[in-house]
Amino acid sequence: MTPRHRSIVWSFTRHSLLLCGAAFILLPFLWMISTASKPQTEIFTKSIHFIPHSFALWDNFATAFGKANLWRFLVNGVVVTVSIFLLQVLIALPAAYALAKLRFAGREVLFALVLFCILIPPQATAIPVFLLFHKLGILDSYAALIVPFTISAFGIFLMRQFFKTVPDDLIEAARMDGISEFGIVWRVMLPTAIPALTAFGIFSVVAHWNDYFWPLIVLNSEHLRTPPLGVASFRNEEAGTNYGPLMAAAIVIIAPLVVAFLLAQRRFIEGITLTGIK
């Protein structure tokens, strides 16, 4: 085989592998859109077809919005994820700055403890936290959804690693200019850390928008439900689950994430290139 042939064969294999991977990831989404576009009678048929014979997407959306208060769920999702992210930043940035740039006794031990916290699965602390919130009487509220996630060990770790790369000169120049230590965090470190913060924002928002486990445990009231819980309300074991509207609702709740990710991804990549030039 000539090298030219070999490169064509390799390129062919490579692309087929990538296509398989893409199909594996995208098929559930396509199936969701397809199901959301079908009337109830077409969903359970023997043959598999992606394109619905009669197009019922708008009917399913109407049913979905009529049956449950989808807007309310979306607003709940935004309130919870945005509050969590802002509070995480408020705590993680000063902590990361101290761990990366200030010299004090026990700094390495503290950092090791932060790393250790990343290893603890949230499920392990769920029951103690639940009991604590019960004692405090804040179960079934926004606070119950937000407070457990305000201290993000991962966020502290990520920002600390980024702050390590910020030159000490910059911080010392700020001190000479008379900026206080907290001022340095917000006026100097925060603006330079936008790329890392964007990356962390994506992780944080996606994780808490999609979280099903914790809201399911602490919530009873329908009006506080987050989007994944809201979709689950379409399941009905007695009358049979109505899959068309359920999938339509699923489209509605993942749409903000997809849009936000596409927008943030651009900034994300810009950020990475920016730091590369520096």
């Binding site: 030159p167 000169d169 910059l170 010392e172 120049a173 700020a174 001190r175 000479m176 200019d177 008379g178 900026i179 100097v188 603006p191």
Partner: peptide, 16 residues
Amino acid sequence: PSARNLAMVFQSYALY
């Protein structure tokens, strides 16, 4: 440092 009323120019310039 800021109260000593000295100014410093750094090797890396350290501009914001």
